[in-house]
Computed example of a mutant assay.
Amino acid sequence: MIFIRYENWKSYLKFFPLTSILLIANVVMFIVLSVNGGSTNSMTLLKFGALVNHELFAADWWRYITSMFLHAGFSHLLFNSFALIVFAPPMERLLGSVRYGVLYLGGGILGNILAVAWYNSVGATTISVGASGAIYAIYGAFLYVALFQRTMMDETSRKTLYTLLVFGIIFSFAMTGINWMAHLGGLLGGFFIYGLLIRLWKPRSFKQ
């Protein structure tokens, strides 16, 4: 079962350096938001890089990246941090930190691009933050492994992944205030980015 974590904190930092950096960055930015007006304050979120599809911010391309490191409320941070801590490490070990970073950022950016396009198409304005799109990109990469590299993933991990995706999709659509298109876009982005990466470079095997 690749999704069970056995490492102590020292081993975790050693084996999963980029995941650790991403976690720390999310926590640091949450603290910054909290002491500058609050993490659920729209003006504070906009000030520190939230993604918004209003024409006044159309030139702020960097928001597609910075928004991935902001979270609206502690529960938002907690859920995404848990997902990173538990589910992301095997993918970092498989791809290596650099390619894993390409997957994480690329999938998150694509999810944000598709989310903005969706809200523009329906004439709605949104302020979006969170690492969920990038996390779903990791799930998308695992889905590719589960479907096309079946020998690399044990059956228990495959069933866990499918269950996670089913509940994740239901949650994305059932809950209000969820940027479901960022989730879906990240999932699709991660699936195809991983497929491209393994054609350019042969991945390692999973470390349990």
Results as ranks from 00 to 15, higher is better:
Y6E: 11
N8V: 14
N8W: 09
W9N: 08
W9K: 02
F15Q: 06
F15Y: 11
P17N: 00
L18C: 00
L18W: 02
L18Q: 02
T19S: 08
T19A: 02
S20L: 01
L23S: 14
I24C: 09
N26L: 13
V27H: 02
V28P: 01
V32S: 07
L33P: 02
V35K: 05
N36P: 08
N36K: 12
G37D: 02
S39W: 11
S39G: 13
N41K: 05
T44E: 04
T44M: 06
L45H: 14
A50S: 15
L51G: 12
V52M: 09
A59S: 13
A59I: 11
A59G: 06
T66H: 09
T66R: 01
M68T: 12
L70D: 14
H71F: 13
A72V: 03
F74Q: 04
N80R: 02
S81E: 01
S81R: 00
F82Q: 02
A83W: 02
L84F: 11
L84N: 03
V86N: 01
A88T: 05
P89C: 09
M91W: 03
G96K: 05
S97D: 02
Y100H: 05
V102Y: 11
V102I: 15
V102F: 10
G106H: 04
G106E: 03
G107T: 04
I113L: 15
L114I: 06
V116L: 03
N120H: 12
S121T: 07
T126Q: 11
T126R: 13
I127H: 04
S128C: 14
G130R: 03
G130H: 07
S132R: 03
S132N: 09
G133D: 03
G133H: 05
G133L: 01
A137D: 01
I138E: 07
I138F: 04
Y139W: 14
G140P: 10
A141V: 05
A146L: 09
F148Y: 13
R150P: 11
M152R: 15
M153H: 08
M153D: 13
D154Y: 03
D154F: 06
S157C: 07
S157V: 12
K159Y: 05
K159I: 07
T160Q: 07
Y162K: 09
L164C: 05
G168T: 06
S172E: 00
A174V: 12
G177Y: 10
G177C: 07
G177S: 10
I178P: 00
W180N: 06
M181H: 08
A182K: 08
H183M: 06
H183V: 08
G186P: 05
L188M: 15
F192Q: 12
F192C: 15
F192D: 10
I193F: 14
I193H: 12
Y194R: 12
G195N: 10
L196H: 04
R199L: 08
W201R: 15
K207V: 15
K207Y: 04
